[in-house]
Simulated assay, not measured.
Amino acid sequence: MAQLSAVPGDLSKLTTLVHSNDLEETREIISHAYSPYQLDCLGDSREFSAWYAESGFPGITVSGLSYGSPRLDAETLIKPQPLDSYLLVCEVIHGRVTVTSPGREVCCVGPGETYVLDPYRSFQVHWSPGARMMTVRLARETVERAAADALGLDDPVRARFALGGAISPQAALTWAGISAAVRREVLGEGIAGTNPLVSTHLTQTTAALLVQTQRLITNGVDPQRTGIVSHAAVRRVMALVEERAEQPHTLTDLAAAARVSPRALQEAFRRHLDTTPLGYLREVRLKRAHQDLVAAGRDGSATVSDVAYRWGFSNLGRFAAYYRERYGHPPSKTLSV
């Protein structure tokens, strides 16, 4: 399993919700924060201790959690109920944990390694003394919308994840990058907590990279994932351009509307339409300009420059070159016919 990050950030900056040697107090508080769960100290109960803290911004919660002490012998076993409404991406910082999904998988995870707990899985986690981890929490709906986008589907899909970590060392590095960005926003008190546009974009990007980098399982759907966003994002941009071709779109604007990164949108357009998003926008605008020039040729309602500016062509020479390449003659000829 590939390591993701060696520097988790200063988790002491999170808001501490429990720091206790009491099993019942810990169970009550963490059950409320996550989901109801069974908590057992495997050894001398006097050696039990727990720490849990969290902070975040709208869409993402970052948590820190540890059980026991590396100087003592007591291990800890937790058996939560399925998470139901959210997913957890868990990264071990110190010690080791063994994650077991009954009847399915067993995964031993060490420092710098991650695993994903989806909303549907039953599981238990065996903590070595003093083990500590950081988690990133995302809403189920956010991830399942991102999974549908990755699979080219219009409706959200029931997304499951294998326990084995990222799909490749390169994917692990990509996830490490977005995880570090999220930590910086939370632990460094970035602007995502007060800027809805930033928090929404970062949440959607995190969900998209989760389904592209981790081992996604879907029932009844063959993902055939290639790392390239599928045609659902292309359809969104095509619809936007057809409806509002006259507006000053940028690649960043179009990617935000498609809920993917600009690079992923570029790759998707090349794959499915053999063009770029801005190339498609230009073709739509040229078609609309041609229609207006034909109409203006009949009633004299506009000039070439009027039509060019109306459809976002601020450089008349460039507009004429595009138009000649597309229609085989200059725009002035269409106007004069």
Rank of each mutant, 00 (worst) to 15 (best):
F48S: 02
F48P: 11
S49W: 00
S49M: 06
S49Y: 05
S49V: 04
A50P: 01
A50D: 06
W51M: 14
W51E: 15
W51D: 14
W51H: 14
Y52R: 05
Y52I: 05
A53K: 01
A53F: 08
E54I: 06
E54C: 12
E54L: 13
S55W: 09
G56P: 05
G56R: 01
G56D: 03
F57E: 07
F57G: 10
F57P: 00
F57W: 07
F57N: 07
F57I: 08
F57M: 03
P58L: 12
P58Q: 08
G59Q: 07
G59L: 13
I60K: 03
V62M: 15
G64Y: 13
G64Q: 04
L65Y: 11
L65R: 09
L65H: 12
L65I: 13
L65Q: 14
L65N: 12
S66R: 13
S66C: 11
S66I: 02
Y67K: 00
Y67S: 04
Y67R: 03
Y67F: 15
S69F: 02
S69V: 02
P70K: 00
P70G: 04
P70I: 07
R71Y: 14
R71L: 15
L72M: 11
L72R: 14
D73E: 14
A74C: 13
A74T: 02
E75Q: 10
T76W: 02
L77A: 10
L77C: 08
L77D: 09
L77G: 02
L77M: 06
L77S: 09
I78C: 10
I78F: 09
K79V: 15
K79T: 15
P80Y: 06
Q81A: 13
Q81R: 12
Q81K: 12
Q81H: 14
P82M: 05
P82V: 02
P82I: 03
P82D: 03
P82W: 06
P82C: 01
P82N: 03
L83S: 11
L83W: 04
